[in-house]
Design a protein around this nucleic acid. Structure first.
Lengths: 220, 220
DNA sequence: CAGGATCCAGACGTGGATCCGT
DNA sequence: ACGGATCCACGTCTGGATCCTG
């Protein structure tokens, strides 16, 4: 398999982005030497992995940004022909205990502060119907950061108040919470304000398509 | 592979122990359907797993006793022809942060409160030279419990005082600390009293052969 | 169509212990 | 001989996301 080193500069990263723009994801995978699954039902993260390899992201690195030397996070997002995002975007796992009190120190902000968005244009139902779009290196404007922070603080508020079961995907303007687990059967304990244990499915932070749409159109 | 249910009673467990007493470990593994490695260098925990299957211990159960219905922990211990233990016995991982303040609530005590010792008689250097000895269902006498507690408290003292690097295998009469990791390259952070981070290899609680010898001879 | 459910790969942690150099 | 180093299996967790149903 062809392994690319992590890019040393933003210029190098952007050159790589231009190089894969327009490519079919299957062609990219073949070039790299990654096996191509029949469909994405049982390989949901496969496209993301292809792009990681194609751009030389440091795969298998935990809490660090994908491009560690540059401090940049990579996010692939499926879009239709009009560049409208088809899915919300996973950001990171959400501890169901209260996090750090400052948004700036949160994993969410760490991930979203500097992102390379790689749109994947979806033109049909097969895995062959996915091509790489034009990448966008992005940092949130101050106004957006405020909204994200406010969403994040709202969510922390639910946790601090022991309202885990009331914390649904409906909470949050741009940033919200969704289940993140192998299935709804996976349960983790959390401590209520009464000191009792309750159980809930693990959660993740996601951003809504309304926001990714604004990002991809250059509005955010 | 032949899977045995967890025993429902101590009698049932002891009957199983008698049934495998005298058996070659390789024969047992073949009967169960477990592949036999060439040697133990690269399969160090293999004998323990064979005995788990042979007795119907709940494998793959985390903090719980091996025989969950009975609250009994299973320990295999290699011994020579004179029943002298050849190795110290691993008890559990040792958090390098201070544990609970009461020995009775510690994982160490939880594991050692009720143990089924299965001696494995080692008569040579090959994997074929290991046969199951006579098992011993055991609970520590009060006098021993005091010593274990004292050892455990000494160790907690080192941790509380931020003396992780001074906490070697020399500390403790019967219970002591040893490295427990894939290699000495594995490092975990710990917080010194000064608030600094330092790194150390993960540790485990072990009991010395002097103690297991006393146990197997019925003295402890 | 959005909220909830689900899926894979690979890293990591833990329980099972024995190896090995001084 | 014993203190420190090491090895496998396997369950769990995390990062990568998309599926699916009312």
């Amino acid at each position: 398999m062809k392994i690319l080193a992590s890019p040393d500069s933003i210029d190098e990263l952007l050159i790589r982005c231009r190089a894969i723009c327009g490519c079919s994801v299957v062609d990219l995978a073949n070039y790299i030497g990654l096996p191509v699954p029949k469909n994405l039902k049982t390989a949901k993260g496969w496209v993301g992995r292809v792009i990681e390899y194609a751009l030389g992201a440091d795969c298998n690195n935990k809490a660090a940004p994908d491009f560690s030397k540059l401090g940049i996070e990579l996010k692939t997002v499926p879009v239709n022909a009009k560049m409208r995002p088809l899915e919300s975007t996973y950001v990171c796992t959400a501890p169901i205990t209260k996090q750090l009190s400052k948004f700036e120190n949160s994993v969410v902000w760490c991930k979203l502060a500097h992102v390379l968005w790689v749109p994947i244009v979806v033109t049909g139902n097969t895995i062959a119907d996915r091509t790489v779009g034009m990448s966008l290196l992005w940092q949130p404007k101050a106004s957006l950061k405020s909204i994200l922070q406010s969403d994040w603080e709202d969510i922390q508020e639910y946790l601090a108040c022991g309202l885990v079961d009331k914390l649904t995907a409906r909470v949050g303007n741009y940033l919200h919470i969704r289940p993140k687990a192998a299935s709804s059967a996976v349960l983790i304990p959390w401590l209520t304000l009464d000191g009792d244990y309750q159980y809930t499915t693990p959660k993740g932070f996601y951003i809504r398509t309304t926001l990714t749409k604004s990002i991809l159109t250059g509005v955010a």
